[in-house]
Design a protein around this nucleic acid. Sequence first.
RNA 1: GGGCCUGUAGCUCAGGUGGUUAGAGCGCUACACUGAUAAUGUAGAGGUCCGUGGUUCGAGUCCACGCAGGCCCA
Length: 1122
Amino acid sequence: MVKFREYKQINYPEVGKEIRAFWENNNIFSKTITERSGEPSFTFFEGPPSANGTPGIHHVMARAVKDIFCRYKTQKGFQVKRKGGWDTHGLPVELQVEKELGITKDYIGKKISIADYNKKCKEAVMKFKGKWDELTRQIGYWVDLENPYMTFDAHYMESVWHLLKKLHEKNLLYKGYTVQPFSPAAGTGLSSHELNQPGTYQNIKDTSVVAQFKVKPTQQSAFLFDQEEEDVRILAWTTTPWTLPSNCALAVGDKIHYVKISTFNPYTYQPVSVILARELINKYFTEKANQIVLSDYQAGDKLIPWKLLNSFTGKDLLEIRYEQLMPYVTNDKLNEKGFRVISGDFVSTEDGTGVVHTASVFGADDFRISQQNNVPAVMVLDDQGLEVPLVDRKGCFVKEVTDFAGKYVREEYYPESVRQDPNFKPTDVLIAIKLKEENLAFKVEKYEHSYPHCWRTDKPILYYPLDSWFIKTTALKDRLVALNNTINWKPKSTGAGRFGNWLENLVDWNLSRSRYWGTPLPIWVTVDKSEKKCIGSIAELRTEVDQAVAAGLMSESLPENFDLHRPFVDDVILVSPKGQPMHREPDLIDVWFDSGAMPYAQWHYPFENQDLFNSNYPADFIAEGVDQTRGWFFTLHAISCLLFDTVAFKNVIANGLVLDKNGNKMSKRLGNAVNPFDVIEQYGPDATRWYMISNANPWDNLKFDANGILDVQRKFFGTLSNTYSFFALYANLDAFNFKNKAIAATEKTESDLWIISRLNSIVREVDQYYDDYEPTKAARAIQSFTVNDLSNWYVRLNRKRFWIGDYNQNKEVAYQTLYTCLHTIAQLMAPVAPFYAEKLFLDLNSVTKLSSDDSVHLAHFPVINEEAIDTELEARMRLAQLASSLVHSLRKKQKIKVRQPLRKILIPVLNEDEKNRLKKVEELIINETNVKTIDYLDDDAGILIKKIKPNFRTLGVKFGAQLKAITPKINSLIQTDIAQFENDGFFNIEIEGEMIELLLTDVEISSQDIPGWLVASMDGLTVALDINLSDGLKKEGLSRDIVNRIQNLRKDQNLEVQDKIDILYSTHDKLIKEAMEVHQQSIQQETQTKTILFNADLPNGISLDIDGAEIIIQLNLISYEK
RNA sequence: GGGCCUGUAGCUCAGGUGGUUAGAGCGCUACACUGAUAAUGUAGAGGUCCGUGGUUCGAGUCCACGCAGGCCCA
């Protein structure tokens, strides 16, 4: 006879290990996929982590979320393929290798070959793969770890090349420039990482200029002109005067307040009206000077008078045109679209004038807002006819800037000897002098600030336009936005706000990276840049190389297993259609393109697996951290939209962060990082997952506190396993195995029907929540059902059914009902707590074999039995719970223990419906509260005291402002008023001399009190309790006390539940003796006693105290009889 | 500086479409229960719903401006 497994206590980490072994030994994960062959597929994309660091606790969270929906969809009958993946390229890997080798980027290609360097990178990137895989298995995240995609794999890279070629064919790949840190002295660009090296930022003194930009009178600027001939100028500040010839726009802050001030130029003494931020007035003008009348001013006066004329916001200034400040280079395009005021989100009023001079090619902000506002750059054509900026790569002005041609823009670039010359003047100073003379400068001064320097040469860097390859994402911006609107984002705001706004302000995707370890850009160009080729596959490259061999440019064909990485691909020279040699563009592509390409590259699409790809694209679901919004979420979306005109994913959860328990970010440096392995080892995977999911929505930040896991263990898992243990204990005693068919509903008790109704309601609810990607709500609903409905109500009410008497149908119904609930809970909780759910499922099935599935994760999601849902019954039961709770509270107040039976409860009812409802749950209330009868008090007698209160919802609509007067009137109605109101169905009251009519729907009437009774009420239900005790009731109460004492004795003597006993007793208390005699039968039944005999002399008996009276009991175990 | 999120009891969190007495669990205190027992029940204490204005008969909820924390971007 197989029995249900019984446990003394549950060791949750052990459950994790045991079930993991079960899964691995029985290939359950792969069965969940193979057994769903032919079913519709639900597609999930795994966002690839980088395995060059160890996993953190937040990965447990992220992976739990992914896992939940994959398991759920499998339950719902879908086939859910899940390929693991690794992000292997990129800067972090390079940096780690450089740290390990103790080298800098300068060494690469010199002291270490690129080949060796990349070999190191390849080794380093998978350093912690073992740890990742182990954690993945420990937390039960089911994903194919055996055949993951790797972004450095040749097949993967080939697919990436294919995508790039498709982009090229669609004319979405182009070469342009971005503004990046550049060191003219070293002749090289600097990465943001190099800029973050210590010592890079140094304080230097620069010549700063506040320049005057003359406003053109137009319709937009009309409000700035008080007189026709007024000289209105916008003041803009710069610490890099050498960029002023390249000025193309002025940036203001939309919300910043600006003013127009009438004054005189301090260098030319000419009258002028200047515009600057209101907050910065006293930086340029003194209060004292404001006292002076403008017309009193004489050229050369020290104090320059000023007068505030006008005030407005940045928004008002937008699109105003001004005259070019230093017109060395200009053209029609510039005159048409340049030299206007635009909005800059970075503009502040901390320094300068609140207006920022913008030279699009010499500042990162400048470049961005110029692009966004369609402002052209100030450029000239070089010898080859290519557009170049006004400063060359050595840091000198080009010849077109006639006054300063050939001069270094920063004095630090001059040799020391030149700078020592007493007559030497830096270019910035020369520019400042010129501006002063031409009435173009308002203020010139030295300004000390922190500025980045090149770590190689120790000279200041420039922000400079450098060549880059771009994907023209802006060309399909509208489509990107439109498709995004079809994606179901969790939470919504991340999709509409964070991601949506990002798409609205999209700039082209800069693909180029000047690095070593990554996917090389597959573009070859001729030296004169007139011809180019984009290669889309290895085969294509092979063909091209053969042609190059034929042309004598290459010595041999491409070898088998050619590595597409640098440096090998750099050595490939192709031949152009015109017979010119072609060299590869040296850049690598952005690693984000790698990961965004995973839907295609993971299957080596289109070279292999076209069917697999077609049936698994786009993804139904992905989930990653919210920090991926502009990372993976974007690259997936962009590639998919640009090349396939579809979304890459239909549903997405953007997780929040996992913080420490105080809400601080976890970091290894602060020592507050939580090691996930320790947590799993200590608390087990299920409680950890359940805690993370049930505590807060995944998209909210989680304050991780291990105490929370303990709570979850105690509250949810403890209660659930207790309930199972309770079931197993008695089911084993009665040899219950669910072999008889399910008993009909007509044979069930009210509470059986109720819990099954609740169960079905909860199945529906949980299904809905999972389907809506609301794991937190699902987990909370399951927990609430388990703890509140099943354990605290159903089991509590039905305890006796399980352990009293012989096996009968009533008992069997109870077993079946409880079994069904536990079994269903196992299925519902399986996505969130896969291990324990499995254990519960297996333990239950081991005896009954009701389910043919080997695993809860192979079973289908519970089917809702709509007929079992009885909302009326659920409402009744709430009423019973409420009534019981009220009686308990009355007992409590009177200090009458529950064991003492009471005669009667009186419940006032307002109508027949309410009475019938209560009658149906009468038994339950009686049992739960230990009273003999319930009487119902109709209102006919008129003795109920009623309470009336306004129904603001209806009154508010009808009377609005009069409510303030009506409310106290209603509250002050007396009993006879209420009775009349109820009788007539309406009631008139006088408000400010006006009669108004109230209807019954305008108020809520409830019974409040019964004169002369002990009452309690809540939510409209009132109960009254009769606390008079008859002798009979007292004896019955005593008999229960006696049972209690005997049970304690049994426990003290370590008797098993099923052991039978005989009892001898003696007492001098008359009432106790009578109680023993009157209730002998029930005492015997409850305590498994065969015979009870009175015996005055019990030397070995145990003396017990019952409310001050003594009883001596001797208890003998009857040897077990077959 | 911009976008987005969060702010409700000591802690973790609920609070469609505005409705007057703001809830739950944990923790705390007291009592009860004692064959689910490392469980359970009942009651109590605990709140300027981040602040300030506004809309409204009525605001935790709607609007505006702030403050604090966080993420991303600059």
